[in-house]
Simulated scan of single mutants.
Amino acid sequence: MSKLKIAIQKSGRLHDDSMKILKEIGISIDNGKDQLKASARNFPLEVFYLRNGDIPQYLKDGIVDAAIIGENVLIEKGNGISIIEKLGFSKCKVSVAIPKAQPYTSLNDLNGKRIATSYPKTVNQFLEKEGIDAQLHIINGSVEIAPNIGLADAIVDIVSSGSTLFKNGLKEAEVLLKSEAVLAVSPKISDENQSTLRKLQFRLQSVLKGRQNKYVLLNAPNDKLENIVKILPGMNSPTILPLAKEGWSSLHSVINKNEFWDVIDELKENGAEGILVCSIENMVI
Score class of each variant (00 low, 15 high):
residue 2 S to A: 11
residue 4 L to W: 01
residue 7 A to S: 15
residue 8 I to E: 03
residue 9 Q to H: 12
residue 11 S to Y: 13
residue 13 R to G: 08
residue 16 D to S: 14
residue 18 S to R: 04
residue 20 K to E: 15
residue 29 I to W: 09
residue 32 G to M: 08
residue 33 K to Y: 12
residue 33 K to G: 01
residue 34 D to T: 02
residue 36 L to C: 06
residue 36 L to P: 01
residue 38 A to N: 09
residue 39 S to Q: 13
residue 40 A to H: 01
residue 45 L to Q: 01
residue 45 L to W: 07
residue 46 E to W: 07
residue 47 V to A: 00
residue 47 V to H: 05
residue 47 V to D: 02
residue 47 V to M: 04
residue 49 Y to I: 14
residue 53 G to F: 05
residue 53 G to V: 05
residue 58 Y to C: 03
residue 58 Y to A: 14
residue 59 L to K: 07
residue 61 D to Y: 07
residue 61 D to Q: 15
residue 62 G to Y: 05
residue 63 I to H: 11
residue 64 V to W: 05
residue 68 I to R: 00
residue 70 G to M: 00
residue 74 L to V: 05
residue 74 L to G: 01
residue 76 E to R: 04
residue 76 E to N: 01
residue 76 E to M: 03
residue 81 I to M: 12
residue 82 S to L: 06
residue 82 S to I: 00
residue 85 E to H: 02
residue 89 F to W: 11
residue 90 S to Y: 04
residue 92 C to I: 00
residue 97 A to C: 13
residue 98 I to E: 06
residue 100 K to S: 07
residue 102 Q to L: 09
residue 102 Q to Y: 10
residue 105 T to I: 11
residue 106 S to H: 06
residue 107 L to F: 03
residue 109 D to K: 03
residue 111 N to T: 04
residue 112 G to H: 01
residue 118 S to C: 03
residue 119 Y to C: 08
residue 121 K to I: 08
residue 123 V to C: 02
residue 129 K to N: 03
residue 129 K to I: 00
residue 131 G to I: 02
residue 131 G to T: 00
residue 132 I to L: 04
residue 132 I to M: 05
residue 135 Q to A: 11
residue 137 H to E: 05
residue 139 I to A: 10
residue 144 E to N: 12
residue 148 N to C: 01
residue 149 I to K: 05
residue 149 I to H: 05
residue 150 G to W: 00
residue 151 L to Q: 14
residue 153 D to N: 12
residue 154 A to M: 04
residue 157 D to N: 07
residue 162 G to K: 05
residue 163 S to C: 04
residue 165 L to V: 08
residue 165 L to F: 03
residue 165 L to E: 12
residue 167 K to D: 15
residue 171 K to M: 06
residue 171 K to D: 07
residue 172 E to R: 12
residue 172 E to G: 01
residue 173 A to S: 09
residue 174 E to A: 01
residue 175 V to P: 02
residue 178 K to D: 04
residue 179 S to Y: 02
residue 180 E to N: 09
residue 181 A to W: 01
residue 186 S to M: 01
residue 192 E to H: 10
residue 193 N to Q: 06
residue 198 R to C: 02
residue 198 R to V: 06
residue 199 K to G: 07
residue 199 K to Y: 02
residue 201 Q to N: 15
residue 201 Q to P: 02
residue 209 K to C: 09
residue 209 K to A: 15
residue 209 K to H: 13
residue 211 R to K: 15
residue 213 N to K: 14
residue 213 N to Y: 12
residue 214 K to I: 10
residue 214 K to G: 08
residue 214 K to C: 06
residue 215 Y to S: 10
residue 218 L to G: 05
residue 220 A to V: 15
residue 230 K to M: 12
residue 230 K to F: 10
residue 231 I to W: 08
residue 231 I to K: 08
residue 234 G to F: 08
residue 234 G to K: 11
residue 235 M to K: 14
residue 238 P to I: 07
residue 239 T to S: 11
residue 243 L to T: 12
residue 243 L to G: 03
residue 244 A to K: 12
residue 244 A to H: 06
residue 247 G to F: 07
residue 248 W to C: 03
residue 250 S to L: 10
residue 251 L to G: 06
residue 253 S to I: 09
residue 255 I to F: 12
residue 256 N to K: 13
residue 256 N to G: 10
residue 257 K to P: 01
residue 257 K to E: 15
residue 258 N to C: 03
residue 259 E to T: 06
residue 260 F to D: 02
residue 271 G to L: 09
residue 271 G to E: 08
residue 273 E to T: 13
residue 277 V to E: 13
residue 280 I to M: 13
residue 281 E to V: 10
residue 282 N to A: 14
residue 282 N to C: 09
residue 283 M to G: 09
residue 284 V to I: 14
residue 284 V to T: 15
